[in-house]
Design a protein around this nucleic acid. Structure first.
Length: 223
DNA sequence: TCAAGGATCCGCT
DNA sequence: GCGGATCCTTGAA
């Protein structure tokens, strides 16, 4: 499915499961929000400058992970789609925890700690970390991965995960199709988020897809 | 080598 | 609703 056209792949990823299994246990989440970035023509895509060292994996075979850093702090997970040679990927924006929510919470905490430990602007960052630590306790399980940066924090995904074959069930990080008992959900679509630098038509093309009514859809955007 | 800016999250107003 | 934190990637010099 991932080898097919990117927009269809994006739709079919809604409802699929993201699985992380490592020494600390198993974390499973249901994907409820994605965005498609298609080809070198798409001026919102990282592929818009052509092939570079960072985005090379987008041009490779489908089913691989592409993890990049935005705003200097947050990792974002993408699934490469379309055949080798065509640059396209689906950004995983939000996931609904199914199993291992406690582990996700611990991973979120670990993410905060690594940043709180750094002191660049004279203790200010540590103060931010302390507050974030407190507020994490108030976050409901459903919202533990309700945003692209949070998905990576909750599943301990970082740039070294780039290139992982997400279709390999033996991989520490991989995808699984929706279970038979999962509730069917309507898929809605709308313009992508955070790409104000792109020009039309790319800026408003409705290539963001989400599961209607899902609690975990990022920041009040479930419409 | 350098400067600019970004597919975000959070707290506070 | 706004702004701060934070650092990697990019393209041009």
């Amino acid at each position: 499915v991932l080898a097919g056209d990117c927009l269809s792949a994006a739709r079919s990823l809604i409802g699929a499961r993201l699985v992380r299994s490592d020494g600390s246990g198993v974390r499973i989440g249901r994907i409820v929000e994605v965005e498609a970035y298609v080809g070198t023509d798409d001026l919102a895509s990282h592929a818009r400058f052509g092939r570079t060292a960072r985005n090379a994996v987008m041009f490779g075979p489908p089913g691989r992970a592409y993890v990049y850093l935005v705003y200097g702090m947050h990792n974002c997970l993408n699934v490469v789609t379309e055949p080798e040679g065509r640059a396209a990927a689906v950004l995983i924006r939000a996931v609904e925890p199914i199993e291992g929510a406690d582990l996700m919470r611990r991973a979120r905490l670990a993410w905060i700690e690594t940043r709180a430990g750094r002191t660049s602007t004279a203790g200010k960052t540590f103060a931010w970390g302390a507050r974030a630590r407190l507020s994490l306790g108030a976050v409901p399980d459903a919202a533990l991965a309700s945003g692209p940066g949070l998905v990576c924090a909750a599943f301990s995904i970082a740039r070294p995960d780039t290139g992982t074959d997400l279709c390999d069930p033996a991989a520490s990080l991989h995808l699984e199709t929706a279970a038979a008992g999962d509730p069917p959900r309507t898929i809605e679509s709308g313009p992508r988020v955070g790409i104000g630098y792109a020009t039309e038509p790319w800026r408003s093309v409705p290539w963001r897809f989400w599961a209607a009514g899902a609690d975990a859809v990022s920041g009040g955007r479930r419409r």
